[in-house]
Amino acid sequence: MKLKVLAILTLVSMLTALYMIFLYAPREALQGDAQRIFYIHVPLAISGYVSAFLLLIGVIGFFRTGDLKWDRFGETAAALGVTFISAQLITGSLWSRPIWGPWWVWDARTTLQLVLDLIFIAYFMLRSYLPDPQKRAKLSAVFGLLGMIDVPINYLSIYLVRTQHPQAVVSPGGGGVSPEMGLTLTVSFTAVGLLYAYLFNRRLAIAKVEEEVDYLEQVVLAHE
């Protein structure tokens, strides 16, 4: 029931956000229509970091309690992390091409997001080769922890490379920001946030049911 309300809210806010991004927000003077990519790019990027944080919470929760529900929590966060960061990297590339020229610029944020994406993917690859739920939870929690404490160190090293090798880095939204743009960005943030919350809760619920069904299956098999 709650999920349904959340789904409707998400849909409404997404449609509103789309309307505002393409029709309400003014055309940016320097970058043209390509600037409209930023309304989705920035919220997606933030949700990537949120995923990393939630995975860390799941890992710590699992270490403290040993409860598989924390494993499901972390796994869901990582799944959303892969999805949102991958989408965000594509939007970044499609912005970079018309504005900077190259498809891909190895600047600090892009590189960090890419590495984070790779860590999430490695996390899933590891899980897919561990059939036993308990062992999978334990080992992927260890990897998740090591991966998430990598993020700040990674950020530091990548940031240092950038500052020591100055490149043509144009900060996003080079032109002036009008109030309409600010409002559009806010609505877009809300839409992405709601979408994230909806997908997170739905996937978490599915994971829980899946575990229960697996359990039932085991019980049935045991009495065969």
Binding site: I21, I40, L44, I90, L94, W95, P98
Partner: peptide, 13 residues
């Protein structure tokens, strides 16, 4: 590019 970007985002989701 903006349309392509939003298309890509929706495809991924």
């Amino acid at each position: 590019f903006a349309f392509a970007a939003y298309g890509a985002v929706f495809t991924v989701i």
